[in-house]
C-alpha cells in the first residue's frame, strides 16, 4: 500500500501528512490532523455534515480525496472563531437554539458562511435552497434559518 505525501494549509496553518490513496479529505482531517469538527454522516455526499471550504469552494470533504489536497487551502469549523470571539453565525446558532444534538452544526455553519460570503442578505428561500445539502434531523430547520438571517443582519451592520 503506497502512502501519498501531502502538504496543505488548514485554517491558515501549514500541515503535512501521509495518507492512503483511498483516504478521503474527511478521513485525513479527522484521523490524521485531529480536526474532528467535520463529521461523517453518510460518506456519500448526501448529508453535508462534512462540509469544509476547499480553495474557496464549499465541498463535501467525504467526496474529496486526501491526496487531492496537495497545496490546497482548507477551512473547517475549528477555524471559524477568532480566538475567544465566536463568529456571528456561531453566536446566533447558540442564541436561537438552532441546534439540538449539534452533529449537523459544523457543516451548517460552514455552508452558511459560504452563503453569506456570496450573498450577505439572503431571503428565506435562498437559505433553504443553499442548505438543501445539509441534513438536520432534529430541528426542522426553522431555528437554523432564523439564526442565519439574524447573523447576516448583524454582519451587514458590522461591515
Amino acid at each position: 500500500m503506497s502512502m501519498v505525501h501531502v502538504s496543505a494549509r488548514v485554517n491558515g496553518d501549514a500541515v503535512e501528512f501521509l495518507c492512503d490513496s483511498r483516504e478521503t479529505l474527511l478521513d485525513v482531517l479527522r484521523d490524521r490532523l485531529a480536526l474532528t469538527g467535520a463529521k461523517e454522516g453518510c460518506g456519500t455526499g448526501d448529508c453535508g455534515a462534512c462540509s469544509v471550504i476547499f480553495n474557496g469552494r464549499l465541498v463535501a470533504s467525504c467526496l474529496v480525496l486526501g491526496a487531492e489536497a496537495e497545496g490546497a487551502e482548507i477551512e473547517t469549523v475549528e477555524g471559524m472563531a477568532d480566538g475567544e470571539k465566536l463568529h456571528p453565525l456561531q453566536q446566533k446558532i447558540i442564541e436561537h437554539a438552532a441546534l439540538q444534538c449539534g452533529i449537523c452544526t459544523p457543516g451548517i455553519l460552514i455552508a452558511a458562511r459560504a452563503l453569506l460570503a456570496k450573498n450577505p442578505d439572503p431571503n428565506e428561500k435562498e437559505i433553504r435552497y443553499w442548505l438543501a445539502g445539509n441534513l438536520c434531523r432534529c430541528t426542522g430547520y426553522d431555528k437554523i434559518i432564523r439564526a442565519i438571517q439574524d447573523a447576516a443582519a448583524e454582519m451587514r451592520e458590522e461591515a
Binding site: R30, T36, K39, V77, E78, I93, I94, L99, T105, P106
Partner: peptide, 23 residues
C-alpha cells in the same frame, strides 16, 4: 427563560466529542 445552552460553544466550534471522535 431561554438562556444559551451550557454546551453551546463546544457544539459550534467543533470541540464537542461525538461517538466517532474518540481515538
Amino acid at each position: 427563560t431561554r438562556p444559551d445552552r451550557p454546551d453551546g460553544v463546544d457544539k459550534v466550534t467543533g470541540r464537542a466529542r461525538f461517538g466517532a471522535d474518540a481515538y
